[in-house]
Amino acid sequence: MNNNNRHLISILMENEAGALSRVANLFSARGYNIESLTVAPTDDPSLSRLTLVTSGNEQVIEQIVKQLNKLIDVVKLIDLSETDAIERELMLVKTKASGEQRAEMKRLADIFGGRILDVTDATYTIELTGDGNQLDNFLRAIEKDAILEVVRSGATGIARGQKALHV
């Protein structure tokens, strides 16, 4: 009950100016924590899909869900952690890649299913997709001082099976 579990909440909301601020504001105003947040329009341009990762005990998560539903711009939402879901995050990593490092970096990128998007004589820019843990593992696997820059999109997700969040 008091365990602070990680939750992946996916929200369908009106694609209107200010809708994102309402969500972000709710979290800061009520002291809820927000680990990541990602948002983009859907196939229906009047709707946006926002995915956020938060954590809290059962009671806090229940309030978060209720408070989000109370926002006028929120059409529907689903707590993907309560269901069987696929979670994915995109990461772009710029690494040093010279001398012996170069072959090793390429090998690790291959093992983690990454793609090298850009190459210079001293660097690689690698794209990786996976759940948060996979991305963390990759960063742990490569030499720490080889990392020049890391950009993560924040987690996004979708329920498995026939379940779908739509209007």
Partner: peptide
């Protein structure tokens, strides 16, 4: 009438 008022402070 407000679901968020329920079990907010007291279960």
């Amino acid at each position: 009438i407000d679901p968020s008022s329920i079990s907010k402070n007291v279960q």
